[in-house]
């Protein structure tokens, strides 16, 4: 399968988001791919609120199957969530379970005015009623469950998408 070029998708995503960004909008990236992407969007969109990061490890719904990761990152929400529009940023949306976990965690910091989701790629296969308001690319056919699509960042900070077979 031919993968779209990540840098082009980021440009499209920035163009989609720009008209909807208000003075108090804040971005929260989901560790790790989403956090990289959020960092780039934060700079390109000149967001005033400091950038947030979330590691959803403690909010996953499949902990009993996967166990706890020892290297979970500390979540960092350096702005007042209460009453603020927030955009959760992830590289790829799939089942929607990660987004659900991020929403739960975000609400433990306060009640946001609204929450949207921004992703580079929607790979299909949703298992929850979750949709990305900003999405640069939707795959025509959902990816098979054994394929893992993710964002990678090289030493110079350039992004690329990578497809990995997990079985």
């Amino acid at each position: 399968m031919e993968l779209p070029e990540a840098e082009r998708l980021i440009e499209q995503l920035v163009a989609q988001m720009r008209p909807a960004i208000s003075a108090d909008t804040a971005l929260v990236g989901i560790h790790t791919g989403g956090a990289w992407l959020a960092e780039r969007l934060h700079a390109e969109l000149r967001i005033a609120a400091p950038l947030g990061n979330i590691d959803v490890a403690f909010y996953r719904d499949d902990l009993s199957g996967r166990g706890l990761h020892a290297k979970a990152r500390r979540s960092d929400i350096p702005f007042e969530v209460e009453g603020r529009p927030v955009v959760i940023v992830d590289d790829v949306v799939y089942t929607g379970r990660t987004t659900r976990a991020a929403l739960n965690e975000l609400f433990d910091y306060g009640r946001p005015a609204r929450v949207d989701l921004a992703v580079l790629v929607d790979r299909g296969g949703r298992e929850l009623p979750i949709d990305a308001r900003y999405c640069a690319h939707r795959l025509a056919q959902p990816l098979a469950p054994n394929r893992n699509l993710r964002l990678e960042r090289d030493a110079d900070g350039a992004f690329s998408l990578r497809l990995i077979d997990t079985r």
């Binding site: 403690f58 979970a72 910091y109």
Partner: peptide, 11 residues
Amino acid sequence: EPFTEVAEREV
């Protein structure tokens, strides 16, 4: 390590 941050949250 990440648990030390929970004390700073609203919830």
